[in-house]
Amino acid sequence: MHKKVLNRDRASFFVITLPALLLYSFFYIYSVVLGFYYSMTDWDGLSRKFNFVWLENYGKILKNKAFFNSVTVTFRYAILMVVFTIVIGVLLAVALNSVKRFKTFFKSVFFFPAMISSVAVALIWDQVFIRALPNLAPLFGVANIASPLGNKQLALYAVLFVNLWQSLAMPTVIFIAGMQSIPDELYESAVIDGASMFDQFRFVTLPYLVPTITVNAILTLKGGITSFDYAKALTGGGPARSTMLIGIKIYIDAFGDTPKFSIANTESVLLFLVIALLSIVQLTISSRSGVNKA
């Protein structure tokens, strides 16, 4: 009797997991395998026939200037994003954490950007850049300010600014959560020892935040490297390829006017290798520190 019950339970557990196993295998794992496969063909994405070319695409890409331009742009973008996210995120978290009155109000406003769609954020800022900046020009004593999105020196920074405007909320809230786990006694004894506000931050808050900072830095780096929405909606990669992040390049190569589907897949395989490596680093660090998981 008991054995029967156990078998019945085992069967229901198995049946429960089956759809997940199938969906995940077909749409997730199989897609990755297909991605690797396409990266070794010469398929343009449209024609019926294509050939298997082994690693030819990888050789082509490594000699391609446009690809290296994208890699440079992407890394500059991602690294700046990490720096700004950590610095501004920690500062905002310290500020928000010490507010006594209107705490909920401040937190709600600062978190608000995380609620809206990235496209809406991008398009609103696009309009602000186009319509508001010329109107603000007299304030700075100049005749006109053009949208930075049309300027190939400034466009990347403008996109980054819009990206940060929205994406800062989450790391900031994580920093606040990290700060609230610091025991109050440490601050009390620091005050008794005559530590200034800055000393308290430097010798109590910051050391306790190191694991949180590390995890946020890696998550932001991954987010920056795979960033897509803002550049797509704001500039589409231009002007003069100055905002051609790797995500945009993959999209254009795959579905643009002159599709090079297999090349796009080669690029995404390389992107996958970078992200996988970063994830391994992230897991190693977080399992060692034991503060944050995955």
Partner: peptide
């Protein structure tokens, strides 16, 4: 472990083949 593999996979590498599929 199989499902956790997803942690290592950026959306870009899935998106191109998935459109064809």
């Amino acid at each position: 472990v199989y499902i956790m593999l997803g942690l290592f996979i950026p959306s870009q590498i899935i998106l191109l083949p998935i459109v064809k599929q």
